[in-house]
Amino acid sequence: MLRTIIISIVIFFHSLAAQSMADLDRPEETFKKGTLLLNKNKYKEAIEQFTTLINQKQFAPELFLQMGNAHYRLQNIGLAALSYRRALLLKSNSAEARQNLELIKDKTGFVDTDPSDSNQILSLSNESLIGTLLAISLWLIGIGIALIILKIRHRKSAFALLIVGSLSATLSTFLSKARDSSRPDHRTNIVIKNDSTAHTGPAQSASTIIKLPPGSSVILVTARDNWSYVKLPNELHGWIKTESIQSLWPYDPEFSD
């Protein structure tokens, strides 16, 4: 009976660890497929593959970088800028993403509501690193529990495994929370449409406040049907068509209203 319980515990922890590692491996195939399509100039198909990963919350700077490259090739300048900004959210020292974003800024002259928006990108813990750390901690905890129950010699080593495993699990949790709490204002939206304009009222006939080239950032205050009230550069406020903007980071539950 005791032997069955021990085996069940070990299998449980090892299955959790194996699942964590498997979850890290599967997205790589989809990403490789998308990259291959991108290299073959099949940009729309590549975007479909990358979007699948994003919908699964498999975020990585390389993913958003390639998404931006695909959109740029299709002349979707606003969506390309959005993707490059997202890449920089995850890896602020991504030279290629920053260079491409600067190229778009030179081309369109986009503006930022907050002057620091373009640089308000923090280096966040890599998703795969957190997952790997969690998997290792589960293995260590499982082995430690098994050694203690079996009353195998070197109990100090067993307790050491439990302590190290627990510390690793705590660290992975801390890194995950630190990553989520270090993001820019969740209300930040990026202009993705060409010829977008902010107006004094929610109507096309209202007076123009400012033109917003694709790639510009605004802060969403409230949305009303087809129009959104946003904060603009120079402490201005105005209305812009909702279809013209997209949230900088719409996938994190911490940012949902």
Rank of each mutant, 00 (worst) to 15 (best):
I192K: 15
N126P: 06
T170F: 14
D117E: 01
F159E: 00
E127Q: 06
L133W: 12
T173C: 14
N119Y: 10
K177Y: 15
N194I: 07
A158K: 00
R187G: 11
I149C: 07
G142Y: 00
K193L: 08
A158C: 00
L162Q: 03
S196F: 08
L134F: 10
F159M: 02
H199P: 02
V191C: 09
D195I: 13
L133Q: 11
R187H: 15
S123K: 06
K193Y: 08
T188K: 02
G165W: 06
I148P: 12
A198V: 06
S196P: 06
P115Q: 00
I136G: 04
S137E: 09
L167V: 15
K151T: 10
I130H: 05
N119Q: 05
L150D: 05
V164H: 14
T188P: 03
S196G: 07
I136N: 07
T170N: 13
L140I: 09
S181V: 12
N126D: 07
I145G: 08
K193Q: 12
S128C: 03
L124W: 02
K193F: 07
I152H: 09
S137I: 07
E127I: 01
G165D: 02
L133F: 08
A178L: 10
S116D: 05
I163H: 12
I192A: 07
V191D: 01
S116W: 11
R179S: 11
A178W: 15
H199F: 07
S116Q: 10
L138W: 05
L162A: 03
K156I: 01
S118Q: 01
I141Y: 00
T132A: 02
N189A: 15
L140V: 10
S196A: 09
A198L: 05
N189R: 15
I145Y: 10
I163R: 12
L133T: 10
H186Q: 13
H186K: 15
G144N: 13
L122P: 09
L129E: 12
N126H: 03
I145L: 08
L171R: 11
H154D: 04
N126S: 06
S172W: 07
R153M: 09
L122W: 03
W139D: 06
T170M: 09
H154C: 08
F174G: 13
H186D: 09
H199V: 04
A198W: 05
I130R: 01
S116I: 04
S137P: 11
K193V: 13
A178G: 13
P115L: 00
I130P: 01
R153N: 10
L161D: 10
N119V: 06
Q120S: 07
L147N: 02
